[in-house]
Simulated assay, not measured.
Amino acid sequence: MVGYVFYVNAYASVMFLCLIALGRYLAIVHPLSSRGVRTMRVAALAGVDVWTLTFLFCLWGLLPSVFDADRQLCLEQYPVSPGYARFKLATAALGFLLPCSILG
């Protein structure tokens, strides 16, 4: 569970920073046309969506098929199984490359 909470915190932080940057972009570049989007309701829904998607996405790392049941480790294990390697590649793509491309 410690590893799960660690990854949820890390990826949710990245996503919230991405939302903050997107909000600033809309407020500065499109101040009048984005007034309908920059509301408390949209911000609350975006926050709930980020937490929900992050919790669900990180559940993939807890699947028994990903981790070796014989080894009791907190966060990482090396060498990794092919399933865990796919999980780490997906987290790198969705947790770093996607937000980086949005901000870029």
Rank of each mutant, 00 (worst) to 15 (best):
G36N: 06
D68I: 00
A44V: 11
M1R: 12
A92Q: 09
R41L: 12
L103K: 07
L53T: 13
V5E: 12
G36Y: 01
F67I: 06
T39M: 06
S81N: 00
S13T: 15
P64L: 01
L94A: 13
L62A: 11
T52H: 02
C100Y: 15
L19W: 09
P79N: 02
D49T: 13
L75A: 05
S33H: 03
T54P: 02
V37L: 13
V14N: 06
K88Y: 10
V42M: 12
V37H: 05
M40P: 03
P31S: 00
L62F: 03
G61Q: 02
W51V: 15
C100Q: 14
Y78R: 04
P79S: 01
L53P: 00
I20K: 06
L89R: 12
S81C: 00
L75Q: 03
M15I: 07
G3E: 01
M15R: 11
Y84I: 01
V66P: 08
A90N: 07
P79E: 02
L98K: 05
P31W: 04
Y4H: 12
V2M: 10
I28M: 07
G95Y: 05
A46M: 06
I20C: 08
R86G: 06
L94K: 09
A69S: 13
L94H: 09
R71D: 00
N9I: 14
M1P: 05
V8R: 01
S34P: 00
P99T: 03
P64R: 01
L97T: 10
G104K: 10
L98V: 15
C58R: 09
A27F: 07
S33R: 09
